[in-house]
Amino acid sequence: MKILVPFKRVPDPATTIRILPDGSGIATDNVKWVINPFDEIAIEEALRIKERLKTGEVVLMTIGQSNWQEQLRTGLAMGADRAKLIVTDKPLDTLTIARVIAKVVAEEQPRLVILGKQAIDDDSNQVGQMLAEILGWPQATFASKLEIEGDRCTVVREVDGGLETVAFPLPAVVTTDLRLNEPRYASLPGIMKARKKELKEIPIESLGLDLTPKLRVKELKAPPKRQAGRKVGSVQELVKLLHEEAKLI
């Protein structure tokens, strides 16, 4: 079974984010770039499905700048078979990103597309659902368990108040939640092999899509900072303050 995993490059979650004073974005000088953590989980799940079925192909793709190659190589080193980089340096909105992925789906014809539930920088949580609609495919977001039997896919989803199970025939779109799996690290032989794997660069213009965003970020500002309060000396003092000063207990 062929599985497509679209991923995004994001600042390492441990990075301290600084907003540029002119409101145009974040300072990137000290940022370490990584595969979006939810997308690492997506890659891992695709690899496990391939290993379980003992057949198939895992294709990675990302839409970004030429130097996102580095993260594609990391994904290939984890074990993915080949990769596509759709090259652009423009800010694209989520619907455009979903349309670009849909173009790649039309060409590659995967049975399953696995994405992250959200990119941890822009936090939109949209692309997978949009892609499913554009393709007219079923969707299962926030997956914590995924089973495939023949052409039928069953997914347990992390929702408010519990776990929901949905089922549908393939092809389909699934987005990952944190508990789906624990991604592997790239091994040294994996890294060596990755160098020889196919990585194709495709200029976004060649896809013939209108890239004008319908959503624009006009300004990015730092939020008001919360002031630290005070330390209290004992449990008794704490409870007294919560009762008498804050009037919450």
């Binding site: 600042p11 984010i17 907003i19 974040i26 941890i120 920088d121 822009d122 936090d123 970020v217 006009k218 300004e219 990015l220 500002k221 730092a222 939020p223």
Partner: peptide, 8 residues
Amino acid sequence: YAGNGMAL
């Protein structure tokens, strides 16, 4: 960015 930025 996990609440580190407010986007207009």
